[in-house]
Amino acid sequence: MAATQENQPVIDIRNLSCYYGDKLALDNINLTVNEREILVIMGHSGSGKSTLLRNILGLLTPSSGQVEVLGKEISRLKKKELYELRKNIGVAFQNGALFSSLSVRENIELPLREHTDLDENTIQIMTMMKLTQMNLADHGDLMPAELSGGMLKRAGLARAVIMDPKLLFFDEPSAGLDPVTSAELDQLILQLRDALNMSIVIITHELESAFNVADRITVLDQGKQILTGSREEIKASSDQRIINMLGRIARDEDVDAEAYLHKLTHKNLPRK
């Protein structure tokens, strides 16, 4: 581990804030991901996890602050440079985001066909390897609509890693899956890190999965970064929001009686 710490982090986020219109979606986020590290970003729905991911991927432009990925600052890159950088990044979307007009195999082959000059045989073999690795060897010729939720996620993962990226993002790997399938996916993620030396960022709200795979965890709540640390640090935290999350206790929001009354009476009044 000592050797990796001398290296530059693969992701370096400094003072990142992001607005959606007037709404502050991310508030001063500082985060690094090191080589061969699995970082899990946790939080409720609406906590800003997806916004953070979209900022890192360059799908959104930060309102302020910097996002550096593989040594390049995302918001300063030209379109061409951004595409060049993204060839080293794999993203597995929540529901796979496979193209419904292509078969599973064609989906997985797509980045190879677009970005490499490999011959047909090599493409076939590489695709088959990834399909086998994801336990989808018999399902390559099916269309995405014919796959189950777990298979879609695995196919999305296969497409994300087909170019052997240095950096992998995985959005909600275990959402909507049964515990066994979810545990299998966790195993796959660990294998990918160990076999291909990837740095991996996972976005999830599933506690169990997070604690199974994470080297470090960062917890977001309403756009704010509450805590970043190892599994043990998260478990030992005294922050009430994290204790609630670990104990699965519903949020107990402080309600200002007057503000609540105002909301109730004014929100639905006709505008003048």
Partner: peptide, 14 residues
């Protein structure tokens, strides 16, 4: 709607 266009962007396909 199904993030397929985002997926294309992320695969560096215009």
């Amino acid at each position: 709607n199904e993030s397929q266009i985002d997926a294309l962007e992320c695969m560096a396909i215009d």
